[in-house]
């Protein structure tokens, strides 16, 4: 995974609450086999008119927000479906940082697996960032993960909270599975005293290695 240390980028506003993951990547794009290439589907139903023509009424299609890498939005961003296609789309579109008053749990978790930094700020600070984004064309923010700060070119500096372990993993681009497998001895020891293999009492119509061997 790509490490995240410091990032400066254009801010794009999406002034809506409860943006759900169905809206980020609609169902028809959840039938693919890859993790790549979802950026072109991001916010599909809002972003495109029939024939995949860009919808001029959609905020992110405005010329001034092209090339944005920081998404500023409202509470409960990423609610609904657990589909990781949503953060895949957000990252592939070019976003590296998301700022909102709150995120839905599963989406928030999924962001960290994909090198995305979701930043939670109080409502008033998010309001202020919206004001500045609208007021200053080309409005940029610099995010310093090590220092946990956000700053702009107009003397604003904000600090943001983040769990120290999530921060450490993001800074170093660490692979979760590799970290867990360092504890394989503990997993094995746990499994020895924790027997939970289900016992099958009746015939069940499923493929299994045992049935295949018959």
């Amino acid at each position: 995974m790509q490490p995240f240390r410091r990032h400066t980028g254009l801010v794009a506003p999406l002034d809506r609450v409860n943006v759900d993951t169905d809206q980020m990547i609609p169902k028809q794009f959840c039938k693919l086999l890859t993790r790549e290439g979802y950026g072109k589907f991001l916010f599909y139903d809002w972003r495109y008119l029939p024939g995949e023509r860009p919808n001029p009424a959609f905020e992110l299609n405005q010329p001034r927000y092209q090339g944005a890498s920081i998404l500023l939005t409202r509470a409960n961003f990423g609610c609904g479906s657990s589909r990781e296609h949503a953060p895949w789309g957000v990252a592939d579109y070019g976003f590296r940082v998301l700022i909102a008053p709150s995120f839905a749990d599963i989406f928030y978790n999924n962001c960290f697996k994909n090198g995305l930094l979701p930043i939670t700020l109080p409502d008033e600070q998010v309001d202020e960032l919206f004001r500045r984004t609208y007021a200053h064309p080309g409005y940029q923010l610099t995010v310093d993960l090590e220092a946990q700060t956000l700053s702009d070119d107009f003397d604003l500096t904000l600090t943001f909270p983040i769990d120290p372990f999530r921060k450490y993993c993001l800074l170093n681009g660490l692979d979760d599975i590799g970290l867990t497998l360092q504890h394989e001895d503990k997993i094995r020891a746990f499994e020895e005293k924790h027997q939970v293999t289900p016992v099958q009492y009746d015939d069940v119509d499923m493929w299994s290695p045992e049935r295949a061997a018959d």
Partner: peptide, 30 residues
Amino acid sequence: GDSHTSTHGAFGALAFGIGTSEIEHVLATQ
């Protein structure tokens, strides 16, 4: 890998939905 995994909690289980990276994690490490 489905958010409605919460359904199984009706039996007094701890059940929750996960993303695809977490599916891979569970496959590899349980």
